[in-house]
Amino acid sequence: MTRLLSSALALSKRLLNLIFSFFYSIGEIVDFFLKCVKYFITEKFYFNIFLKQFIKIGFNSLPVVGLTSIFTGMVLALQSYTGFSRFSAESAIPNVVVLSITRELAPVLAGLMVAGRSGAAIAAEIGTMKVTEQIDALKTLSTNPFNYLIIPRILAGIISLPILVIVGDIIGVLGGYLICVNLLNFNPTVYLQNTYNFVQFLDVFSGLVKASVFGFLITFMGCYHGFNANGGAQGVGQSTTYSVVSSSILILLMNYIITSFFFRL
C-alpha cells in the first residue's frame, strides 16, 4: 500500500516536472521572440546578411521544392483519375490538382523540405557558433547577435517561402498537366483553361499565407535551438534534431489552424 502510494507520488512529481518544464520552455520561446521584435525595431538591420540568407534559404531550395512539386502534381493527377473515372468525372481533375497544390500540398511539402534542409543548417550553424564562443565574441565586439545572426535569417524565411511556393504551385500544376495531356489524353488547352478559370485568388493567397508562417516557424526554431545549444558537438546535433522535429510538428499544426481559418471565410 505504501509502496503504491510512493510510486504514485513519484509519478505525479515527474508529471509536475514535465508540465513545469513545458511552460518554462514556452516562456523561453516567447522571450526569444520578443527580443527579436525589440531588436529588429530598435537596432541595426544587416541587409547584406539578409540577402545572403535569402539566397541560401530561398534560391538554393528551388531544386528540392521543384522536384517535390512536380512529382506531387503528377501523382495527384494519376490518383484522382483512378477515383474520378469510376463516376465519369475525369474533367474535374485539373480543378482538384490546382486546388490541392495551391491550398495545401505546395506550402506543406515545401515547408517540410525546407525545415529539413535550411532549418537544420541554421540550427547547426548557430549552435556551432554558440558552443565555440563565436556568439560571445560577437557580443563583446559591440555586435548584437540577434541583429547580426537571427533577425536576417527569420526575415529571409518569411519572405522566401512564399516565393518558393509560387514556383511550387506552377510546377505542381505543370506536373498534373503533363500526366493528363501525355498519358490520359486530355486536351492541353482545355486543361489549362479549366485550371485558370477555376482557381480563385483566395486559394493561392491562403497557400502563401501558410508559406510565410512556415518560413517563420522553420527559421525561428532553427535559430532558437541553435542559440540555446550547449555542450559541444553533441549539443549541436541535438539542437538540429529539435529544430527539425519541432518545426515540422508546428508546420502541421499551424497548417490545420490556418486552413480552418480560411475555411470560414
Partner: peptide, 10 residues
C-alpha cells in the same frame, strides 16, 4: 578585448 580559449573567430 578578449582572446577566447579557442580563439572564437567567425
Amino acid at each position: 578585448g578578449i582572446l577566447f580559449q579557442n580563439s572564437a573567430l567567425l
